[in-house]
Design a protein around this nucleic acid. Structure first.
Lengths: 383, 383
DNA sequence: TGACTTTTGTATATCTATATATAAAAGTGA
DNA sequence: TCACTTTTATATATAGATATACAAAAGTCA
């Protein structure tokens, strides 16, 4: 019985905040409503201070159009980008611009209890630094390093760590921050940020995240594809190599490179250390990065050929090593894909760099907060 | 300016013909409209004879609900399932039930001119046999063995045969049958039929079509995924085998089996001949089918692991050979996919068998004919 | 400056969808 | 048979969206 509000203010806000339409004329064009109806919905959003005018755009021969944007300063969004051993926290405005960030070597491997004892303190510290309070936080977005059941918000099985098994993380978050909370796999969150802000002109992307682990997300027809049980993008099937089958993680991840470098006496803790070592010209690191790049590229050639995306976007710390890592990934993919799929295909580093996780988490929090039906009902009841 | 008719009769018809809702109560539930509005739209469709009552369903404790269906006898749809060397034609009613079919060993390799000199004669013959006329044909659906640019309706490059290069096939069809015409790649059309009629309970499918050639389609989130330039499902990238790289077509298609059997002195023309020979117990055929099955299964393990579908559906003539062909495909996939993707996954033969092409072509013709906006405007202008 | 364009606002009449109430139709089950 | 349910129809009043017309604002361009 969910009444569909065909002309609710929520869809107007959705067009404005995603940038698909920001002037009256564009909004009318997109929505097919009458000018009067749109004006009413805009008034509702303006009255509720959800949007504000951003001034006038350049004239196109007549009166210049007025641009509307979300009232980004009306509140904050809180981002968690939880990695295996490293976590980033961020506070953004309602347009997902990062205001302040913090990070620490704590992560999934330390368990939920530890993380959620540590995180609220950091949040309070960050809030103090920008002169805001907890009550200013309107939504939370969380990225976790593993599949998530989108329906229930629980972590999908199997978790390598039983402390996380079947955990309803949003409930845990709400205990500390009682606002709307959205959650997804870390690489999916990176994909949201990259596809919406980094590559808005593209609709079909293969996203790779290569740090200590290797993971993958798919943006198909402009939307994150998750598969039947949230398992899409899984890279854990055995590689087709000579000798006994091994997974990509074992064969070509940052973790594997770290092991090899540590064995040679280098001091490596994070994937960023690997990139630094390579940048200093260390031949061991350079060689290992090149080999890993080629292995990863080879491993996803089949997917790229099959899905015919417009771009393969490589993020994560290792992607910072353009050469030799990324260049080898690129060479392997472009060299292995048939002509048809290669035409127009680019293999590029993530455009948002290391901030993609925090920004993506903020974006899904934004989506949850500004969900069209919620907004429509909100502005209706205010009248 | 495309005015969106939020409460047009087109969306009502769409729910009815796709079977998502066929009673007043169900339609109201799906649409969120008031009872009165829905009644008006139903009256419009009934007045225009686009739908008819199908009588009453069983009571659920009160007055039994009335069921509505498309007036399937109001016209015909014409289906082309053009293969490389073999083509099927079919006439269906407006609900895509096949009324009559015909086929011949003529196909893509013979060129467009030849096909469209031959086809109209067969159509007239079929029409005569069921006592209908050309004017009864309301829409045409065409399947072709190669990528199609969905926007322009042209065959996507590169075509192996220059007679088809960049050809606007719908224009050619309209010259003979001046009605709405829809067109897609053959395996996509099979996928439409299988996913909508064969596997309506599933949303994510990998569809394989194995005859003389091997091709693949993807149904993701319930929709055909085509890739950035219609190239999704391409299987032409080199296999990762020992020795020099070869494509799946060269390694494990019906064409390859035919070559091998012909070399051994068997008389094989079509992929159906291969299956017959195997059914008669011929060990050469059985062995070749088993090997091909395993090779194909191995080749798509990566895709299946990556996309996490609910089913892999295998169609085309070779799929008729459950054993040893299909069983080997199944064994290779289920054996190669990691635990997470294997859970709940089935590898099954196409449920519509050889009719999938003709039915699928009819379905996309139906989609074009009953496109919501067209219908809405149609019933409006009639008042 | 003055003619023109595009954008925006406002008021009125009209159209459309909905809510509400009442009732009838057509079944089930005691 | 009778009370009950679900489904369907109809009428009236109300709410909401649109069309239309007119006007003003704010720019461009000759």
């Amino acid at each position: 019985m969910a009444r569909v509000l065909a002309t609710g203010s929520g869809v107007v806000l959705d067009l404005i905040r995603t940038g698909r339409a920001r002037t009256r004329t564009d909004l009318i064009e997109h929505l097919g409503w009458s000018r009067i109806t749109l004006a009413r919905r805009l008034d509702e959003l303006l009255d509720a201070s959800i949007i504000v005018s951003a001034g006038q755009l350049d004239s196109r021969g007549g009166r210049p159009p007025e641009e509307f944007v979300v009232n980004k300063d009306a509140g904050l969004l809180l981002s968690f980008d939880i990695g295996r051993s490293h976590t980033r926290l961020g506070l953004t405005d309602l347009a997902s611009t990062v205001l302040i960030e913090d990070e620490a070597d704590i992560g999934f491997q330390d368990g939920p209890t530890e993380i959620f004892e540590w995180a609220p303190q950091v949040v309070d510290y960050m809030l103090a630094k920008i002169g805001r309070r907890r009550a200013d936080i309107h939504g939370v977005g969380v990225g976790v390093p593993g599949p998530v059941d989108a329906l229930t918000g629980r972590l999908a099985a199997p978790q390598p760590d039983e402390r996380w098994q079947g955990l309803a993380l949003p409930d845990l978050v709400k205990h500390h921050f009682p606002v709307v909370c959205a959650m997804d796999r870390d690489v999916n969150i990176m994909a949201v940020a990259e596809s919406r802000l980094g590559w808005p002109e593209y609709h079909d992307l293969v996203i790779l995240k290569v740090g200590l682990g290797v993971s993958c997300a798919l943006v198909l027809d402009g939307r994150i594809y998750r598969g039947s049980r949230g398992g899409a993008g899984d890279l854990s099937h055995p590689l087709r190599t000579a000798g006994e089958p091994r997974t990509l993680e074992a064969e070509a991840s940052g973790a594997m490179i770290r092991r090899a470098l540590v064995a040679k006496g280098h001091r490596i803790r994070t994937s960023a250390d690997i990139v630094s070592l390579a940048a200093s010209g260390n031949t061991d690191a350079l060689h290992l990065l090149a080999t890993a790049g080629r292995t990863i590229g080879d491993a996803i050639v089949g997917i790229v050929a099959m899905l015919n995306p417009e771009a393969v976007v490589v993020g994560g710390n290792l992607a910072e090593a353009d050469r030799p890592f990324l260049s080898e990934v690129r060479a392997a993919i472009l060299g292995g894909v048939p002509d048809f799929a290669r035409t127009g295909l680019v293999v590029e580093p993530a455009r948002l760099g290391g901030k993609a996780g925090v920004i993506g988490a903020s974006l899904i929090a934004q989506d949850a907060l500004f969900e069209p039906d919620r907004i429509s009902h909100l502005t209706r009841s205010k009248r």
